[in-house]
């Protein structure tokens, strides 16, 4: 486990982790850095193409539908709901990690379950949004939306949208699967036996990262 932090500790003298975290957690951080660069590359290439285009579709025109509301003009409302769901599931994940520190098996299972439900809700929202856009004629290689200045838009807009939100959705999906695996282990008592719930912290880091990426996707595709 982590050692206590003292002011004059010589971190690089060996014998303990100079980062004061376990190997597994440090490697999760390094994986997340590499993943951040993958998402960064995708979002920056999107930005580059957008900067090189004279005009671009208006997100408020494209993303203005809400399930069951027909043709009502509701820009940003649905994606705000999705953002709220993901932030909420991040909160339940922190609460699961916190319950793990308390060695409270029941609470860990409860909060992990809520996190899984939140993740599933987010994916359901995304599935609805994709289906809706598909029925409007948008897909990879197809873009029915016009630019702000009225000119015909290239397929860059839809290609980047489906690729990047799809890649993020894939991350959410793997996060939900990981959370289910960890929940099964919690219920089996694996971590109770091990004496700590650090695995919950590790998947927690991953889950928060997915939320973090969504913050940037939300800004880049829906706000800017």
């Amino acid at each position: 486990m982590d050692t206590a932090v003292t002011a004059k500790k010589k971190w690089w003298d060996g014998g303990y982790s100079p980062f004061n975290v376990s190997y597994g957690k440090l490697m999760m951080w390094y994986f997340l850095i590499s993943d951040a660069f993958t998402f960064g590359a995708l979002l920056i290439s999107y930005g580059t193409i957008r900067f090189s285009s004279t005009s671009w579709p208006d997100p408020n025109e494209v993303f203005r539908s809400f399930p069951g509301m027909g043709h009502a003009n509701l820009p940003l409302v649905f994606v705000s709901l999705m953002t709220f769901i993901l932030i909420m599931s991040s909160v339940t994940m922190v609460l699961a990690v916190h319950a793990g520190h308390m060695r409270d098996k029941k609470a860990v299972a409860k909060w992990l379950t809520w996190t899984i439900i939140g993740g599933a809700c987010f994916l359901a929202c995304q599935a609805w949004e994709w289906t809706h856009l598909f029925h409007e004629g948008a897909w990879w290689g197809r873009n029915p939306f016009h630019n702000v200045d009225g000119t015909l838009a290239s397929t860059n807009f839809t290609n980047f949208f489906f690729t990047i939100t799809g890649f993020h959705g894939l991350h959410v999906t793997s996060g939900v699967v990981l959370n289910i695996v960890i929940l099964a282990n919690v219920l089996k008592g694996t971590y109770e036996e091990r004496g700590h719930y650090e695995m919950v912290e590790k998947v927690g880091l991953y889950w928060h990262f997915v939320d973090l990426v969504w913050v940037f996707v939300f800004t880049c595709f829906y706000l800017l």
């Binding site: 932090v5 971190w11 100079p18 980062f19 004061n20 975290v21 440090l26 951080w29 991040s90 909160v91 994940m93 922190v94 927690g204 880091l205 928060h208 990262f209 939320d211 973090l212 913050v215 940037f216 939300f218 800004t219």
Partner: peptide
Amino acid sequence: LTVLKAFYIVSEFMHLGSEIKNL
């Protein structure tokens, strides 16, 4: 505002703000 949100997620939820400087 996006960077501010990112700061709160990383610092509080991912707990990086409470880790040692090396990390």
